[in-house]
Design a protein around this nucleic acid. Structure first.
Lengths: 213, 213
DNA sequence: GCGCACCTCACCCCTGAGGATGATTCCATC
DNA sequence: GATGGAATCATCCTCAGGGGTGAGGTGCGC
């Protein structure tokens, strides 16, 4: 029997390596790395994503990848398994949600069940306190929407881009931005971006083309 | 030569495995896992901690562990390399701060330097001494003025602020900005800031406390 | 029921940011 | 001494970004 191929998308080497090692002993699964936008992809059975708290982009990404990998299953794989994030992820087309806290046997089991067609959520409850189920910026009093919009600002999108990405009117986007600015104590987009950078809103982004050079 | 022993304290299997695998090819280092409060510990050379954002307990933990491992080096190993966290960690007794985003060679290098007695911070924005004629962005074809203006943009200043800071007319500032944008291949200030962040233009600076709440 | 927080959107208004273009003065280099 | 890059500034124009305000809808808790 050929192993189930698990692809990790756009995540850090530490995570990719860790997953590979956690699954290394089991011949039923096999881990590959996947970087968006780098030409012809392999054809994995399961694609693991970390949306890093920004789930709106996720829907689009999944839709796009699904075109290339029709039979694939798309699963959010994140440190943050906040209930609302889980729900949003499933609503936007994810086939499952796995916490990065999940260990070997349970993880393999979940992956196999996902491959079999189940929708699996593991890690939905916060088990042990540390790093509670917060989206980034939650402790600054940001609502999920505000954090989301801030995350997109931190990624360099324009208001219009954010509106398109989130399926919102540009006026709503502005409203969230203003309200977020007030909460994090900034006045300009530039400051908001720096705040985002310093608070972990910045995704690892191998898909961003380094210009020039 | 015996390898430098790296202990990961109380972290998730994904992280421990990932680190072990990232360092697996190098005989100069060796990874072990460490769980606090489980009897006699091994005697690692370097202890990696994730305080998960709550640094208040870190000082105590380090002090306690240091009693058991007198020669050991204690390093915070975290996803979040926020400046303030870095500074607090160093102030409370950490010997270094490593971002979990850091990859293989850089990571090994950092660990060896830490073992040699250096205090190493990687992943936070640390300004290191630069040679004259080696301003950041020089290799992208930026002139010194353009780089200077970009650096100030990256720090969140407005055009007017930059003009004041550099004793320039606001029109000159705009000219440099446009020219710099063309060279680094961006169109918006937001993108320029991200470019700056990714190219080391960000200077450490105290951040304002969010108002209200 | 009432209040409250959040999500959503609209309208107005103003300023900052950015593009295009051109001028001047240096200074190095060919 | 001509060419070219850089630094410096100006003028004109456009629009994205941001503030203020109000308002309808939902869902939750008291």
């Amino acid at each position: 029997m050929t192993p189930v191929t698990i692809a990790v998308v756009n995540d850090y080497p530490l995570v990719v390596s860790g997953l590979a090692r956690l699954l290394a002993g089991d011949e039923r699964v096999r881990v590959v790395e996947l970087v968006l936008g780098t030409g012809p992809e392999s054809d994995p059975d399961i694609v693991l994503f970390d949306a890093f708290g920004c789930l709106d982009r996720l829907g689009g990404d999944i839709a796009e990848l699904r075109r290339g990998t029709p039979g694939g299953r798309f699963v959010v794989y994140s440190w943050n398994a906040d209930e609302r994030l889980v729900r949003t992820a499933l609503d936007t087309g994810a086939d499952g949600y796995l916490s990065k806290r999940v260990d070997g046997r349970e993880l393999v089991d979940a992956l196999l069940r996902i491959h079999a067609g189940e929708t699996v959520v593991i890690g939905g409850e916060v088990a042990e306190g540390r790093e509670p189920g917060d989206w980034p910026g939650h402790d600054a009093g940001l609502t999920a929407r505000e954090a989301e919009v801030l995350a997109l600002i931190t990624q360099g999108l324009t208001n219009e881009g954010i509106a398109a990405q989130c399926h919102l009117s540009i006026n709503s986007v502005k409203t969230y931005i203003r309200s977020a600015y007030r909460k994090i104590g900034v006045e300009r987009r530039a400051e908001a971006i720096l705040w985002g950078v310093e608070h972990g809103f910045l995704q690892p982004r191998p898909w961003r083309v380094p210009t020039g050079l």
